[in-house]
C-alpha cells in the first residue's frame, strides 16, 4: 500500500445534492417572471375577452359601453409608431455608427457617450414636458401627431443608440481589417461588411425601442391630453390619442364594464406589439448570419 499524506473528504453525494439544490432554486427564480406574466395574461384575457368585439376596433370612444371603441386610439398609436420609427431609427443608427466607427476617442465623444447613457434613464414624463415646451409651445406645432412622434423619438433615441452600438461592437475586428486591406474606404467597410453583420442586432434594438414607445402613456398624456377624439388623424398635424391613454381613461371610470373594456384594450395593445415583434423577428432570422467567432 502506498503511503500518502493527501487526505480528501470527497463527499461526492453531498456535492451533487448541492448542485441539484441550486438547479431547482435557479429554475424557480426563472419561473417567477413566467408565472407573473401568465397570471397577468390570464387575468386580462378573462376580463377582456367578453368585451372584445368588432365594435371595439371600429367604433370611436363613447359614453355607452356597448358602443365604445378605440378606433381613434388604435390609429393614433399606429401614426405615432410609424412616424417615431421614421425619425428615430435613421437618427439613432446614424449616431451609433458615427460614435462607434468614425468618431475619434476624445473627451467630446466621451461626454456624448455618458450623456446618451444618462438619457436612457430619464423618466418619460420629463420627455413629455420637454416635448410640450419645445414642440407644442416653442415651435408652435400644437398638440398634434407630429409633436407626439418627435417627443417619442427623443424618448427612444438613447435606447436605439445604445443597442445599435452594442451590435456594432459585436462585429469582430478581423472583418474590418479584411475589408480595409482590400482597399475599402471606411464607409465601404461599414456599409459592405459591418452593417450587414450588425443588422440582426439593429432589429432587436428597434423592437425593444418600439415596444417601449407603444406602451408609453405619460409623455403622450402631456402632449395630447385628449381622450375623446372621434376621428382618425389624417395627417401629421391632426390631434390624436393613443391606446395607453384610452385604456388609462377606461380604467379610471367608475363603472365595472369599462374595466372590462380596458382589459380588451390591453389585448389589442398586446396584439399590435406581438405583430410588430413577429415581423422584426422574422427579418432578424432571415438575415442572421453565422459567424466564425
Amino acid at each position: 500500500m502506498i503511503e500518502t499524506n493527501h487526505t480528501f473528504n470527497r463527499n461526492i453525494k453531498r456535492r451533487q445534492n448541492l448542485g441539484k439544490l441550486f438547479y431547482v432554486l435557479l429554475l424557480l427564480f426563472s419561473l417567477v417572471g413566467l408565472i407573473g406574466l401568465s397570471a397577468l395574461l390570464i387575468q386580462i384575457l378573462r376580463d377582456g375577452l367578453p368585451y372584445l368585439s368588432t365594435n371595439l376596433i371600429f367604433n370611436y370612444p363613447s359614453r355607452h359601453i356597448d358602443q365604445a371603441g378605440l378606433k381613434s386610439a388604435l390609429f393614433g398609436t399606429l401614426w405615432i409608431l410609424s412616424l417615431t420609427a421614421l425619425f428615430s431609427l435613421p437618427i439613432g443608427m446614424g449616431a451609433a455608427i458615427y460614435l462607434e466607427e468614425f468618431a475619434k476617442k476624445n473627451w467630446i465623444t466621451n461626454f456624448i457617450e455618458i450623456n446618451v447613457g444618462n438619457l436612457a434613464g430619464v423618466p418619460s414624463i420629463v420627455y413629455g414636458l420637454l416635448g410640450l415646451t419645445i414642440f407644442v409651445e416653442l415651435m408652435g406645432l400644437g398638440r398634434v401627431v407630429l409633436a407626439g412622434a418627435l417627443t417619442m423619438t427623443l424618448l427612444i433615441l438613447p435606447i436605439i443608440i445604445l443597442s445599435t452600438r452594442e451590435s456594432i461592437k459585436a462585429v469582430p475586428n478581423s472583418y474590418r481589417e479584411a475589408a480595409l486591406a482590400l482597399g475599402a474606404t471606411k464607409w465601404q467597410m461599414v456599409k459592405g461588411v459591418v452593417l450587414p453583420i450588425a443588422f440582426p442586432g439593429f432589429l432587436t434594438g428597434a423592437i425593444l425601442a418600439m415596444s417601449r414607445a407603444i406602451g408609453e402613456s405619460a409623455p403622450m398624456i402631456a402632449i395630447s391630453a385628449l381622450v375623446y377624439i372621434t376621428f382618425i388623424p389624417s395627417h401629421a398635424m391632426d390631434r390624436f390619442t393613443v391606446l395607453p391613454i384610452q385604456i388609462f381613461n377606461w380604467v379610471s371610470r367608475p363603472q365595472a364594464e369599462f374595466t372590462g373594456l380596458a382589459a380588451a384594450g390591453i389585448i389589442v395593445l398586446l396584439t399590435v406589439l406581438l405583430l410588430m415583434n413577429a415581423v422584426a423577428v422574422y427579418f432578424r432570422n432571415r438575415y442572421q448570419v453565422k459567424s466564425n467567432e
Binding site: 478581423s174 472583418y175 479584411a178 486591406a181 482590400l182 482597399g183 474606404t185 459567424s291 466564425n292
Partner: peptide, 19 residues
Amino acid sequence: IDIRSKIGMVFQKPNPFPK
C-alpha cells in the same frame, strides 16, 4: 486606400466575410 488595393494582405486567422 490606394496602397492597400495594390498591396494585399492575408491574415493569421482565416477571416472570410460571413457572406
